[in-house]
């Protein structure tokens, strides 16, 4: 069976719309009858990824590919890139500005949470070029 491919533009200027892509994916998974616990993991991991693109990279593209047994999510941006991925993966580490933190974001839990709630995670990042995050979650 082919996969169901859903594509989204993540608007980097708008905090209010951040989460729209994960909301739409969540709705789709529910319509497919994917178990609630899996829907929840996808929702949290994808939402964190989306917010990261808004905070750090002025938005980007999100692609969700749904297979009968899993979902693959690719989040691609052309932002500043991550200089030290190992450090970025540490809980509590954040480069977010005070302004962002005052909104309740930038607690340094984005990437750690994405890792925690996904089965596979891959980060490909080049400073000055951009970042691509791949997440795989099995149902």
């Amino acid at each position: 069976m082919d996969c169901i491919r859903l594509e989204y533009d993540v608007d980097g200027e708008n905090f209010a719309s951040a989460g729209n892509a994960s909301e739409s994916v969540k709705r789709t998974l529910k319509q497919l009858g994917i178990p609630p616990a899996s829907v929840r993991r996808v929702a949290i991991a994808m939402y964190e990824g989306e917010i990261n693109m808004v905070i750090h990279a002025h938005g980007g593209k999100a692609v969700a590919e749904i297979y009968p047994d899993r979902i693959d999510i690719t989040l691609k941006d052309t932002g500043p890139g991550i200089a030290d991925i190992g450090l970025a993966m540490k809980a509590g580490w954040s480069t977010a500005s005070e302004n962002i933190r005052s909104l309740g974001f930038g607690a340094g839990m984005g990437l750690p949470n994405m890792k925690k709630y996904s089965d596979e995670m891959d980060i490909d990042s080049v400073v000055g070029v951009g970042t691509t995050v791949f997440l795989r979650i099995r149902f």
């Binding site: 069976m1 082919d2 169901i4 859903l6 789709t28 529910k30 319509q31 497919l32 009858g33 994917i34 749904i66 009968p68």
Partner: peptide, 21 residues
């Protein structure tokens, strides 16, 4: 309730969702 689902069978639901898209 399962009435929000396109089908109670996951494969059938996926086929239907492709058609919806």
């Amino acid at each position: 309730s399962t009435s929000f689902q396109l089908d109670t069978d996951r494969f059938a639901a996926m086929q239907k969702l492709m058609k919806v898209e």
